[in-house]
Nucleic acid binder design. Structure first.
Lengths: 166, 166
DNA sequence: GGATTCATACTCGGATATTCTATGTCCGAGTGCTGAGGG
DNA sequence: CCCTCAGCACTCGGACATAGAATATCCGAGTATGAATCC
């Protein structure tokens, strides 16, 4: 039942993108290297975020990735769902309607009670993720920075010339 | 990220066990057939519940499965966790500590903010599941029965002689 | 000097392997029933 | 008639295949760049 590891990648990548200056873009390859991730598979995760409109991709020689919308409008739920193909955690296959003692399907209008509780729990999970925006994470990251990381990042970006755009 | 299908099986199976008379037991094979499930893999799920103490198994010729503790003391969370090997949904691999700009690990005493939100959401999910007991599900099932199913079940149990014990 | 053109380097995106987990199957060890045999 | 005992049918539990998803890799299509060329 584990979430895909791409979820972790995507969340950190989006946070990094949200911390760049407005309009700036960075190649997927550099973004992967920055996080110590193999770039090949990482790009697949980014593709899903691009398809969802969360991230914007620019092709061409000085292309790269950038936020597709303001960080305030991106919730963690959007990112997770995009990366997990909008799947649900618990899938009810209506096994109550199977087996030798099941009634005709028209008698099962009320939803399965087990599925109902599972969905309720899932809704709470989603609620927390929906309530947290990327902007809040960015706020925390800038308010309580890890010593040295921001400076090292600026240096690294300048040295590698990874950031393009405004 | 889907939960295993065995979770659905286990939940329905536990509910069925909880609706049997006190002390009664039923073979895993019959319980699988009742739900229209292939018995071979179903037994693997039951093994996990037995190991967790939720279900009790009796060997021998007239053996079978029974509840291991009162339905009031069994939450849905216990069942789900037992079947999913107590895994967590989101696994933080601390990628913030990787890459060329990471600081020394002693500077990362505060937990990762992304992981914190994910864990908070997961805690809410667990909370709902922990708040619901098997006894509540049994209550709903007896209060709003699907027409004919209970009768058919009694008949089927009598015909097949699947129920043993007091 | 300035505009144009063209080769180029670099980007994303999808087609293609490989590994790992979930699912499915099977058979052996163990245990309580049951019926025969003896007292 | 009642007790003993051995055979047996049936149970669970774990070892062994298979299917599907997640992970990892590679190469091709497309585009902005920038140098070379011409006016």
């Amino acid at each position: 039942m584990q979430l895909s590891e791409t979820v972790e990648w995507g969340l950190h990548a989006c946070l990094a993108l949200a911390m760049l200056p407005d309009g700036a873009r960075i190649p997927a390859r550099a973004l992967a290297e920055y996080h110590g991730i193999k770039p090949s598979y990482f790009s697949k995760a980014m593709q899903k975020l691009v398809a969802a409109g969360i991230v914007q991709s620019t092709e061409g020689r000085s292309g790269g990735l950038a936020m597709g919308k303001p960080a305030e409008d991106v919730s963690l739920l959007q990112i997770v769902m995009a990366l997990e193909d909008h799947q649900v955690l618990f899938r009810c296959t209506e096994i109550r309607q199977k087996g030798p003692c099941a009634a005709a399907s028209r008698h099962y209008r009320a939803p399965c009670n087990i599925a109902r509780v599972m969905r309720k729990a899932e809704a709470e999970w989603r609620r927390v993720l929906a309530e947290t925006s990327l902007a809040e994470l960015r706020q925390s990251a800038t308010a309580e920075p890890v010593p040295g990381v921001n400076e090292a990042t600026q240096t690294w970006l300048a040295e590698t010339g990874a950031v393009r755009g405004t």
